[in-house]
Amino acid sequence: MIHVVRWLLLPVSLLYAAVVWLRNRMYDLQILKSTSFDLPVVVIGNLAVGGTGKSPMTEYVLSTLKQRRNIAVVSRGYGRKTKGFRIVKTTDQSVSVGDEPLQIKRKFPETEVIVCEDRVLAIKQLRDTVDGVLLDDAFQHRALKPSFVILLFDYASLLQPILPLPTGNFRDTLVESRRSDVIVVTKCPDHVDPSVKSVIASRLSRYSHSPIFYAKTAYGHLKNAQGAHFDDKLLADTHVLLVTGIANPKPMASYLTQRVKNVKHLRYNDHHHFTQREFTEISNTFRKIGREQKIIVTTEKDFQRIPSSFLDRHPVYFLPIEQAILFGEAPQLNTEIEKAFQSGSVN
């Protein structure tokens, strides 16, 4: 039924695509002005709505550079209840700064993480104190002209028709990929057939000559609030209550289903702010799992939104993920990232 309704909205999608196209051309023709800076400003973005792995890619970039660069991360802080420029601290709550910026700050405590709706304003306040700026999800923020763009595509989305919102999931047309400097196709299967890889490369090369890299989601060890790992040897006999508030939890659910005794899934919307009533629901659902060997598992992003009072009373673990670059091409991507933070302003 949902698919039928989305197709009925195709005229709205065409109108949306026309408006987006016109807006982009106005920036290209400098009718609408973009601001550039005399320091590296690297954007990680996508054309679709959510779910392409921007946060893991942000962490990948920081892991590549953190020992050699003083890089600040700037994010809108989606879902936060505050406004304006704010420096993220490890002790913050997700409602104040957003779950993804808080996750990055806690994982990279030495990195300056900022949330601000106005990215240009944020960079103006940072530019005298950092060597470069990394922006999460700012591809459509055309008031800012980056020096380098890492554009992400979900693997499955490139094997389907590219349709604009609301019929499809794309907020920009494929032609905008020409503004990229590097393209990373994320969430690939373990083995990408060469013929499929060729189809994807052919589709993207119509608009962009940027190098294309392929990445899969690599899962780490289950970890709790104290940083202790769950014993992998016990997984096969463990019952899991999976709690997610992300755009696409299916890969994670599938991963766990193959490794644990049983998975019961409570699914919420992306960036969902859990209420006390919902925590009670989670607690009651967990209690009804009539097995001794049981745990609650969530994503690292959702983990930032769970209060310590709940964590103290339940065995909650999060499953870390990272981008694993395929075909042995991580060194080439790392070289591109290094070059990105050596570049200067955009003319």
Rank of each mutant, 00 (worst) to 15 (best):
M1R: 09
V5T: 06
W7I: 09
P11S: 02
S13D: 06
L15V: 14
V19F: 09
L22T: 07
D28C: 13
T35L: 03
T35E: 08
S36A: 14
S36D: 06
N46S: 09
G50E: 07
S55P: 07
T64K: 05
T64M: 09
L65G: 02
N70H: 10
N70F: 05
R80D: 12
V88D: 01
V97R: 00
L102Y: 05
P109G: 02
E112R: 04
E112D: 10
D118Y: 12
R119V: 06
L121I: 14
D128Q: 08
D131Y: 06
A138Q: 03
R142Q: 13
R142K: 07
A143H: 09
P146H: 04
S157K: 15
P164H: 07
T173V: 02
L174E: 07
E176S: 11
R178Y: 11
S180A: 15
D181P: 00
T186A: 07
C188A: 10
C188D: 06
R206Q: 15
Y207E: 04
S210W: 00
A215L: 12
K216D: 06
A228L: 09
D231H: 07
I246A: 04
A247L: 05
N248M: 06
Y255M: 01
K264C: 02
N269V: 12
H271W: 12
F274A: 07
Q276Y: 10
R277I: 15
E278L: 14
E281L: 14
T285S: 14
Q293T: 09
S309V: 15
R313M: 07
L319S: 00
I321D: 00
E322V: 02
I325K: 03
F327L: 10
F327E: 10
G328N: 15
E329C: 02
Q332A: 13
E336R: 03
